[in-house]
């Protein structure tokens, strides 16, 4: 027997969560693009639109609470509701990291950001991780979720390289220490996005298997 109402609610929850995921992905993409191409207007937009992402997060949370109260979900349905609560929190915080990158760009003023190639590589990988994490959720794919957790190692390594690179730049150009510090902050924001993708993947594993496990402990 199908529980029509419950199935519809579950689908709605998933759709809302994915919408939040899509908003977050766009925020990260735009923040990096704005920084790379010195587009202050776009950075400003990322900062301003973070409010919409916060609102969406609370909307999904309220929906989850209503779902639990009215549908009394159990087993996999209950795990989905709980996993969704955690995932939307991570998505919203990722968007905060994107907003942070936007604010850093605005702090840098009109001159372009110092060139730290690892930062763009970290950004690409972080976006891939986010996409894979959300796909693993939709497909209930534990293998893909584990892949996401493992992919965080590459981001951590790039962060190490970015850190070394930025320190070298600071030594070489002491007058630009502040600007390079901003780049360090940017790299840190991206590193945290990777960690939060890992959190999402761990929730997917919980959703599918019922086991709570920490798959990959970040070095930071």
């Amino acid at each position: 027997m199908k529980r029509g109402l419950l199935e519809r609610e579950l689908q709605l929850l998933q759709d809302e969560m994915l919408e939040l995921g899509s908003m977050t992905e766009k925020a990260v993409q735009r923040a990096l693009e704005a920084l790379r191409h010195n587009n202050a207007e776009l950075s400003q937009r990322v900062v301003e639109e973070d409010r919409l992402i916060n609102e969406k997060r609370y909307q999904v949370e309220e929906h989850v609470i209503e779902f639990i109260a009215t549908q009394s979900p159990l087993a996999a349905d209950l795990r989905l509701a709980i996993a969704t609560l955690f995932i939307v929190t991570d998505l919203e915080r990722m968007a905060d990291h994107a907003e942070g990158i936007g604010r850093i760009h605005l702090l840098l003023g009109s001159s372009p950001a110092p060139e730290v190639p690892q930062i763009w590589q970290m950004g690409e990988r972080a976006i891939d991780m986010l996409r894979d994490a959300l796909s693993s959720f939709v497909q209930r794919d534990v293998e893909l979720a584990r892949h996401v957790c493992n992919a965080d190692d590459a981001i951590d390594s790039l962060y190490d390289a970015a850190y070394a690179n930025i320190i070298a730049l600071m030594i070489r150009e002491p007058e630009s220490v502040t600007r390079h510090t901003y780049m360090l902050w940017t790299a840190h924001n991206l590193e945290r996005i990777g960690d939060r993708c890992t959190n999402i993947a761990e929730r997917v594993i919980f959703l599918v298997t019922g086991r709570l496990e920490e798959i990959n402990v970040s070095r930071y």
Binding site: M1, L6, L74, A75, A76, L78, R79, G210
Partner: peptide
């Protein structure tokens, strides 16, 4: 009620049959 091992238990307690 959170993680039944048998799919028949899962189906029953989530109201998919019975």
């Amino acid at each position: 009620f959170t993680n039944p091992r048998d799919p028949r238990t899962e189906q029953y307690i989530t109201g998919r049959f019975g």
